[in-house]
Nucleic acid binder design. Structure first.
Length: 318
DNA sequence: CTTACGGCCTGGGTGC
DNA sequence: TGCACCCAGGCCGTAA
């Protein structure tokens, strides 16, 4: 499931190999995930890749930009859930569900494989301007604390829904939203408006830390993800909550729970990430940052769905 | 305007 | 052996 760190890893791999390469030939298999397959077949052969970059979860291949302006054509690719973009030799065995082949002038081949075809591909004749990319929010790794606060402060939506909203922040998906919230010790169901400024700043920091570490480890390989060389990432070995229902929290030992938040499976520690923030009545001391595993928790066992009711509906104000 | 929710795309895995 | 069904994530339309 390629999210920001995986797409960034693929983009870096392709950026190291593609600039200057000319596309000699395009071969398409299934095309129902391609916005304009005819244009791709007609316009791509002969064009040269000038740069590969990530924009949110999208890969942008800038083409023929001797001037490096945004007016030059580009190829926009979204890997969806199972998309792979791999550079290989033409004689390499073709993986099932490989739908696009780009023959390159260095003798290699760039292939797009996508089991589910939840990904997408689009040729942009005039570059990314007017492509819809401008509707996306800020990049999580570039946004300042101030801009981050202004995007989230006062919003009545669940914090997890906002992290996943590509119009707010571009690039975060379900896995990293959960990992970020665990690191920030914030329950996914919390309303953004109920978070204090220092909690939002903590979230900003956690977001940068988690994503940067994931990029360093070349992403998470949960199901199908591999980088441009076909190699898996290793950040899945560092997941603290995602996919760990029933397993012990790395911080306090409490079993990790799963609940549906914002329509997505969400994993969290019910103890480190309390749904109800303690009212800040005792001024003075800030809330403790380390969770002392004091009480022994009830014996493992299945927690019944157990979605702690967040304060959400409690203060429906007139 | 903001938020919530259901449905859709596809195919691998699971359980009967 | 076969088959129905669930689920994954992003996005969009609709409802409140």
């Amino acid at each position: 499931m390629p999210e920001l760190p995986e797409v960034e890893t693929v983009a870096r791999g392709l950026q190291a190999a593609l600039p200057g390469r000319r596309i000699l030939n395009v071969r398409l298999s299934k095309t129902d995930f391609i916005a304009n397959p005819a244009e791709i077949e007609r316009c791509l052969p002969g064009s040269r890749v000038s740069r590969v970059r990530r924009y949110g979860k999208f890969l942008v291949l800038d083409l023929d930009s001797s001037t490096a302006t945004s007016q030059s054509p580009a190829l926009l690719i979204h890997l969806g859930m199972t998309g792979r973009l791999i550079l290989c030799r033409p004689e390499a065995p073709v993986a099932p569900h490989t739908h696009v082949f780009f023959a390159l002038d260095d003798g290699r081949e760039l292939r797009y494989t996508d089991i589910r075809r939840f990904g997408s591909m689009q040729f942009l004749p005039r570059g990314v301007n007017g492509s819809g990319l401008e509707k996306l929010g800020v990049d999580p790794l570039e946004v300042s604390e101030l801009a981050f606060l202004s995007r989230l402060r006062g919003r009545r939506a669940r914090i997890k829904a906002l992290l996943l909203d590509q119009g707010v922040l571009r690039g975060i998906g379900n896995i990293y939203a959960d990992e970020i919230l665990w690191r920030a010790r914030i329950h996914p169901m919390c309303l953004a408006a109920n978070l204090k400024q220092d909690e939002l700043l903590c979230l900003h920091r956690a977001m940068r830390d988690v994503l940067n570490e994931a990029i360093r480890l070349r992403g998470s390989s949960i199901s199908d993800y591999v980088d441009a060389e076909g190699l898996p990432g290793t950040f899945q070995l560092r997941h603290r909550v995602y996919g760990r229902e029933g397993k012990k929290c790395f911080s306090c030992g409490t079993p990790i729970r799963r609940a549906v938040v914002a329509g997505r499976s969400s994993y969290f520690c019910p103890r480190c990430q309390p749904a109800l923030r303690a009212p800040a009545r005792s001024r003075g001391k800030s809330r403790e940052l380390s969770a002392p595993p004091k009480n022994q928790n009830r014996p493992k066992q299945h927690e019944h769905d157990g979605v702690p009711k967040p304060g959400g509906r409690a203060h429906a104000r007139p």
